[in-house]
Design a protein around this nucleic acid. Structure first.
Lengths: 253, 253
DNA sequence: CGTCTATTTGAGCCCCGTCAAAGGCGGTGG
DNA sequence: CCACCGCCTTTGACGGGGCTCAAATAGACG
């Protein structure tokens, strides 16, 4: 089991190990993927835009990014967040044209991997191929959960759910410190992810604060009682498929 | 190019041909998948339920089904519809447990395919493997578009968008007749798919009818002016990835 | 022709959106 | 080190799109 993070691909490995145990050879193969030069994107700049032809796979190393779609009149929906260890568009080179954009939220460090290099690794190491397929399936499951979130939950539940999900995802890759984590997205971002206006996000956050469910200030989130926040948001971790029993969820770091 | 539909897998082939052209051998391999005995599900019964262990791949042959998620208090979100030619849960056997349910809306005819039979076909016929990957990517893209729909569009736009999408998807598999198609879902279903109450769905449909954009009665939908309805819903067909130029969209059948 | 489900209608209201403006905070440059 | 600036957060007042509750009507099916 991996405990320290000193390779670029270690956050990815931490996450994939929620699904499978890797051999030394597997880890070496994944680490080799990380040898590509690190790219940087400035905050609020796009990595790729709707309409572009996708050519490479991207692995996020540091910072937060998001996937979003826009309507002709400017309305914008964030359909997913990327944090370190996340792949964006693992298979999307199959498609001719992007149907959405990927934008940096903070400064983002990432590497690009050529599709045929991915395919080579997946062919040579079936366990990695299977783990990456799991990664894709979980990404789809998260997408469905977000639709449930926006379609059925109240503003309070929606925001609470988003906070819990991101906290749990960050914990998997070792980016939480006790009951706290960095949380660099703005209230406007939260609104675009949950289908709410920034004004209403603000009032709802104050309500959650007032109930002692969260502390959120200076880009830092603290969740004093995770179970309580899960209850408030009707959070069921099953869609993250962290493992058979979900024991990773309850393990403290 | 396929023109008649006399094999069980022909709707699937029609759809996959939006992405690739198959050889005779490819079609034969797909047709062979369709030899499994046909299963039937009654209207409003589940094919598989959240929490179940997924074991087989399902191909819808006839009728409509849906993927849905529920909250503990009963709120329900339909996260996708299945029509003939659609696979449900192509890869989901990787996961230990379903995070959503699949339910029949009408009487549904389908076949079940064992995962290893799928894998055998995909190994033997790479073009099929690639087409099925395309199918999965399009399914994810549809999911994202639905999130944009529920998160950002107004009730009127949401419903109009859903109608256009389903019409276009049905047209791809040869299930439209001119500007009309069977449309067996209830106003309640539309509400659960769009995050609206059935009452408001009803009023909004009346508005769309009043504007001459749709006719919808007796489970039959007519769209006199598809372009107009697309405009009303800000429908951009790119997310269906029907082909490079989207020319299938404009071809009349 | 009764029963069940789906559609339709009405009245009232609330959650959340809109518009507008004031603070707060971090970054930058002089 | 301070002053300025831009972005983000916060607050207030008001309005409306969609929800709730309730009941009537219309189809579908046996």
């Amino acid at each position: 089991m991996l405990t320290r993070v000193d390779q670029r691909t270690d956050r990815l490995i931490l996450k994939l190990q929620a699904y499978t145990r890797f051999s030394e050879e597997d880890r070496a193969a994944l680490a080799a993927l990380g040898r590509a030069p690190v790219q940087e994107a400035s905050p609020r700049h796009d990595l790729i835009r709707e309409g572009d032809e996708p050519r490479t796979v991207r692995l996020i190393l540091s910072g937060w990014a998001c996937r979003y779609k826009t309507l002709p009149d400017g309305r914008r929906q964030i359909v997913g967040f990327f944090v370190p260890g996340d792949f964006c568009d693992l298979n999307v080179y199959i498609l001719k044209e992007m149907d959405h954009s990927v934008g940096a939220i903070t400064r983002v460090g990432y590497i690009q991997i050529a599709p045929d290099e991915m395919e080579r690794v997946m062919e040579a190491r079936p366990r990695i191929a299977r783990a990456l397929l799991w990664h894709e399936l979980v990404t789809s499951a998260v997408q469905r959960e977000w639709l449930l979130n926006v379609g059925q939950r109240t503003a309070r539940e929606r925001i609470a759910h988003l906070l819990v999900e991101m906290f749990v995802r960050l914990r998997v890759v070792g980016l939480t410190q006790g009951d706290a984590c960095d949380f660099p997205i703005t209230q406007n971002d939260i609104g675009e992810a949950t289908g709410l206006t920034p004004v209403h996000v603000n009032r709802t956050l104050q309500e959650l604060r007032g109930d002692g469910l969260i502390e959120l200030a200076q880009r830092r989130l603290t969740i004093p009682d995770l179970k309580a926040l899960m209850r408030a948001s009707m959070f069921n971790p099953n869609y993250l498929h962290l493992d058979h029993e979900g024991r990773h969820l309850d393990a403290n770091d």
